[in-house]
Amino acid sequence: AEDTGVRVELAEEDHGRKSSIALRLWVEDPKKLKGKPKDNGAIEFTFDLEKETPDDVAQEMIESGFFHESDVKIVAKSIRDRVALIQWRRERIWPIVQ
């Protein structure tokens, strides 16, 4: 995944069964963001792979004050890259569950 300066990782083991998965996002390189992130804590949240989109979560993070509006695209892209990886792995490791 392209280095956006925002890191997204699994916050729990993924067994491919649940449609929602816990993720953790943090800013690795604040210089890559247009706005100043609120604090550089790791933000953990649950993401529903079937019903939600990375843009939903990114917008909610902006509205919750974690990021500046001008960084919504970077945040959404970082989540999208990780979600794509999770789905790619799920299709290979647990194709029957899909």
């Binding site: 690795e28 550089n40 790791a42 933000i43 919750s64």
Partner: peptide
């Protein structure tokens, strides 16, 4: 370690915890 929690109006819960030093890139 200190955890803070923000619940968005749509109901999603965001839990903020310190990033382990090892994960923060030296800028």
């Amino acid at each position: 370690n200190s955890l803070t929690q923000v619940v968005h109006s749509a109901g999603r819960r965001f839990i903020v915890s310190p990033v382990p030093e090892s994960r923060l890139r030296e800028s």
